[in-house]
Simulated assay, not measured.
Amino acid sequence: MKVIVAPDSFKGSLSGKEVCEAVTIGIHAYDSDIEVQSIPIADGGEGTAEAFTTILGGQLISERVEDPLGRPVDASFGWVEETKTAIVETAAASGLPLLQQGELNPYKASTYGTGQLITAALDHGAEQIILGLGGSATVDAGSGCFQALGVKFLDQEGGEMKMNGGALRHVSKIDTSQIDRRAQNVQWLIASDVTNPLLGKQGAISVFGPQKGVQEEDIPAFETGMEHYADLLETATGATYQSKDGSGAAGGFGFTLYALLKHVRVESGFTLMARLGELESRMRDADLVITGEGKIDEQTLYGKGPIGIARLAKEIGVPCVGFAGKMQGDLTRLKDEGLLSVLPIVEEPVTLEEAMQSSSMLLQHASKRCMEVYHLNR
């Protein structure tokens, strides 16, 4: 028997790779002869670097960079020597998981650390960079990242500013003449499922700002700052990207990527992973596919990794089940999409903190039970 284990991360608890390890232990506790292939997945957010690095046979390289608030943090990017490919996720250096409750600060949060990771990847000789845009804690439009790459953001007196969400409205001039030319020459693959424009009711601030700490009463001020910045950058580059699909991704990061880089291609995070990891061919001779993530609800239908796995499994005729730390809402439609059953891993009433601390063991137990039920129905 062959089982494909292809989960997303259980955010705040286990990475996709760690979920695979726990599920494999549980399956082998039932029958050590079962062949298990682990394929951790991600959609551009937290865990993207590890997941892509695993499927591409690379290694993680750690660097000391700045977190969203400018504090030192160790963050990793993936490296595949054979193809000179680097995998950078915005969440690793500039993501929400790096901030404690109460630390969200859209005025001060910056993507500068992501720019430091990209610089490190370029120093390694990257010829292609896969950049995951999910999970950022920032609304600085990626300006901090490009400051780390050499772009100058000047105030009215001509002094260089430190870029963050609050600085956008105060920029007077953008000087792109000293941008790291290596960034212009590499091939960029942007892993993102966000199609929102930069501005407006469906834009970066209105839709995603609140999850990054923007208060409702402050939305107009941040929107004005974003519009001011966008107009300046378009003046500096002669390009217009404010309405382009995906320009609102990661707090406007997508817009600056489009405006300042030459060789940019955007692809759905899951679609990109499925293509590079050859998921369809690897799943074709499987007897069962197991996926999952920390929370499965109706939103799972909208581009989340597990539903992508389920749809692919349905297409090739392989049964697929999902594990979840939490289930919520009407999940009937998930079955129609190929996720035949969602199995909660929690065994008894516990607090969220207790469940997260025990998630590896809970997944092991759930996997063993899953295999017992699977064989009862054969």
Rank of each mutant, 00 (worst) to 15 (best):
R369T: 08
S172A: 06
M226Y: 04
R378M: 09
L14D: 06
T85N: 07
A310K: 04
V5T: 00
L14Q: 07
H28A: 01
T24R: 07
Q147G: 04
N377V: 09
A310I: 06
E81P: 02
D336H: 15
V318L: 12
M163L: 15
Q147C: 10
P106F: 02
G45R: 01
S13M: 10
S15W: 06
C320S: 10
G325I: 06
L288G: 01
A274L: 09
G135V: 06
W79I: 12
C145Q: 14
E354P: 00
K262Y: 12
S136A: 11
K201F: 09
S359W: 10
A249T: 03
A6E: 06
V5L: 02
V5H: 02
K368L: 10
K326V: 02
N196E: 07
K152C: 13
V3W: 10
T332G: 13
K262T: 12
L198P: 05
H124Y: 10
G225R: 05
Y107W: 10
D336R: 11
K304N: 04
T111Q: 07
A29E: 15
D67N: 05
I27W: 00
E46M: 01
M273G: 07
E315M: 06
Y229T: 05
A109N: 05
E278N: 11
T351S: 15
G150W: 00
S9E: 11
P210L: 14
I179S: 00
A286W: 07
S15D: 11
E280G: 08
V342N: 02
V151K: 13
V321T: 11
F146H: 03
V214H: 04
I4Y: 14
T138H: 12
A313K: 08
K2C: 02
A92W: 03
